[in-house]
């Protein structure tokens, strides 16, 4: 057990180190990535730019800059942004994290419930109209880009039908911390949750349906039915349990990467200032410290989520253990 945990930790360090180095290299390989002129300001004199360059340590060799950045990020935690001078990176990410966490967690609950329900229902009525309908909607969900869905939702709830009884409860776009006003937090998150979950309900529903149908053909199912177990019990207990593995694996990957900031489009469209939006803003202006921080933050969650999911899979299906 301990060995497994240690090996996972080692893996996390390797992955994060690898990504940080790659990010660093990509940044400096990009022409016009030098932030000195952007920091110094429009039409700055050459001396001013030089002064800024020295001030930010941009004239030191790459590995020194890398080392300093890592030190400032993890040890002294006083790393500052290139774009917003004086803005501390670590508190900024920490402040943005709850928004993303709220968004992704809520959506995750919705999409797991929705996906599982969809998958089981579609598999149970396989070939008949509920199956066709659900799979049709699922495919629609997968094919509609999240930024488009989000904008359409806003178009309806904030603009066209804003004053009707149906949507007048929808508050202004933006994130309110739960501790500040739970009611407002909930109301402002409903549509972001639904928008983000929509795509994944489609994906997971589809995967689960196929998985259940396949598992249904397995021997042990036939045995269970021969033994007299009714259809529903068989379905739920045996088939799903086996078919759910790929869903759990996908969930780990999706949740990890979304909490790390991949939900950027949803965040921007709904005005939720989370880690995703932070990453996106940093990319637009090539703000290396912020990019580095958010990339490492994301990779941390990806690795942790995958580790947790692997453990879960072992519990669900012991066949996955290595002999």
């Amino acid at each position: 057990m301990l060995a497994a945990i240690l090996s996972r930790l080692l893996r996390m360090v390797v992955v994060m180190f690898g990504i940080s180095v790659i990010t660093f290299l990509i940044f400096f390989a990009t022409p016009s990535s030098d932030p000195a002129a952007r920091i110094a300001g429009k039409n700055a004199a050459q001396e001013t730019i030089e002064a800024v360059r020295k001030d930010f340590g941009l004239d030191r060799p790459l590995y020194v800059q890398y080392g300093l950045m890592m030190k400032r990020l993890f040890i002294t935690r006083d790393l500052t942004s290139f774009a917003n001078r004086g803005q501390q990176i670590v508190p900024a990410v920490a402040a943005a994290a709850p928004a993303t966490l709220s968004l992704v967690s809520g959506a995750a609950v919705l999409w797991m419930l929705g996906g599982i329900l969809t998958g089981i229902t579609a598999a149970a009525w396989r070939g008949r109209w509920p199956d066709k309908l659900l799979m049709g909607i699922s495919m629609m969900a997968v094919a509609m880009p999240v930024f488009w869905v989000g904008e359409m939702v806003n178009l309806i709830t904030q603009n066209r039908l804003h004053d009707t009884w149906a949507f007048s409860w929808v508050p202004a776009l933006g994130y309110t911390p739960f501790s500040q006003d739970p009611g407002l937090w909930f109301r402002s998150m409903v549509f972001p949750w639904l928008t983000l979950a929509f795509l994944y309900i489609g994906l997971y529903g589809r995967m689960l349906r196929t998985g259940i149908i396949e598992t249904y053909q397995e021997d042990f199912i036939r045995t269970a039915r021969a033994k007299g177990l009714t259809g529903r019990k068989v379905l739920l207990k045996h088939a799903t349990r086996s078919a759910i593995i790929p869903i759990v694996i996908m969930f780990g990957m999706d949740f990890g990467v979304l909490v790390g900031g991949a939900a950027v489009l949803t965040e921007v469209v709904f005005g939720i200032n989370g880690v995703g939006r932070l990453t996106y803003q940093a990319l637009k202006v090539l703000d290396l410290p912020m990019i580095m921080a958010t990339v490492l933050y994301a990779s941390f969650f990806v690795v942790v989520a995958n580790a947790v999911v692997d453990l879960l899979c072992l519990l669900i299906d012991p066949r996955m253990r290595r002999a």
């Binding site: 893996r11 390797v14 992955v15 690898g18 990504i19 790659i22 990010t23 990509i26 940044f27 390989a29 990009t30 022409p31 016009s32 990535s33 990957m253 990890g256 990467v257 790390g260 990453t279 996106y280 990319l283 090539l286 990019i291 990339v295 994301a298 990779s299 990806v302 690795v303 995958n306």
Partner: peptide, 21 residues
Amino acid sequence: NLIDMIWAFPVYLLAISLSIV
């Protein structure tokens, strides 16, 4: 490890960088 790195990889950074390069 490779899979984790690809999944956590900042693809948009690479894209922006490539577009400028």
